[in-house]
């Protein structure tokens, strides 16, 4: 198994993960993972199911306490200054997190209140964001009545309500049809271009990786590669990121094609 680390950054990191390990009892989920991503970039966290992506997300979002290593967001340690760190982050979890019994507006309003935003300001932000994700006409509908893709768009709008500078998305396109996947991905990439928001996009789908992306490859809890697509491809002597991933993870071609496309 090869191990590739490439790339440099000028300036402070949007996210810095340093020597992080995590275990569920005796089951090791992450082993000495270290990387950093720059502000305003689209970074893909690539790994098969069980690679440790969701565990890493749970640590970055402070759902779990970081026992070994450290994580900081724009210089704020998630353990010691979790409030400051979390104010800068918008999160879209892999599992659906909308309250199905509440309306779209009530869901978003609740999230706004969790960031200390209330009253007219919350209303204005909600209306503007729903417009930007083309969901204004569903503002009073119960979340239960939305399709999977629509729920995801609402969750993305919700994650942007408090105007974060780093957006974390954990397998945001899982369970969606091809068109919805493409729409969501395009929407997120546009955010990076137009608003300068940094995005950390966890996926097991290699076809969601673009040539210009920064990629962090995680496999069985270990970091295998960290750099630009072209750098990783070149460093592994591969012809594509798919082939590079296959080599890094020590997979056979059929496994890689089946699991990560």
């Amino acid at each position: 198994m090869q191990h590739v680390k490439t790339g440099e950054m000028n300036g402070p990191a949007a996210l810095e993960v340093a020597a992080v390990s995590y275990s569920y009892g005796t089951k090791r989920a992450l082993s000495d993972v270290s990387f950093a991503i720059a502000p305003g970039t689209f970074t893909v966290l690539l790994g098969l199911n069980g690679a440790g992506k969701t565990t890493l997300f749970s640590l970055i979002s402070h759902l779990y306490n970081t026992r070994h290593g450290s994580i900081s967001i724009f210089g704020h340690d998630i353990g010691r200054a979790s409030g400051e760190a979390l104010r800068r982050v918008g999160i879209v979890f892999q599992a659906r997190t909308l309250d199905l019994d509440l309306s779209v507006y009530q869901n978003l309003s609740y999230h706004a209140s969790l960031h200390g935003i209330g009253g007219r300001e919350a209303r204005q932000r909600i209306e503007a964001l729903l417009q930007s994700v083309d969901m204004s006409d569903r503002i009073n509908d119960k979340a239960r009545s939305l399709s999977g893709g629509q729920m995801r768009r609402i969750e993305i709008a919700r994650a942007l309500l408090h105007r974060p500078t780093l957006l974390l998305l954990d397998e945001a396109t899982v369970g969606l049809d091809i068109q919805s996947r493409a729409d969501i991905l395009a929407m997120i990439r546009k955010l990076v271009e137009t608003d300068g928001i940094g995005v950390f996009w966890a996926t097991h789908l290699i076809d969601e990786v673009d040539d210009g992306d920064h990629v962090v490859v995680l496999h069985k809890g270990s970091l295998l590669a960290n750099g630009g697509v072209t750098e990783i491809v070149s460093a592994t002597g591969s012809s594509s990121i798919r082939e590079a991933f296959t080599r890094l993870a020590g997979l056979d071609a059929a496994t890689a094609a089946g699991a990560a496309s």
Partner: peptide
């Protein structure tokens, strides 16, 4: 600490009043 950061443009988007601590109203 052996972190390997990504390259990329620095954001021009202002941080949302993140340095201002939450008050009682919040």
């Amino acid at each position: 600490m052996n972190t390997q950061p990504a390259t990329g443009a620095t954001t021009t988007r202002p941080v949302n009043a993140a340095s201002k601590p939450f008050g009682l109203r919040s």
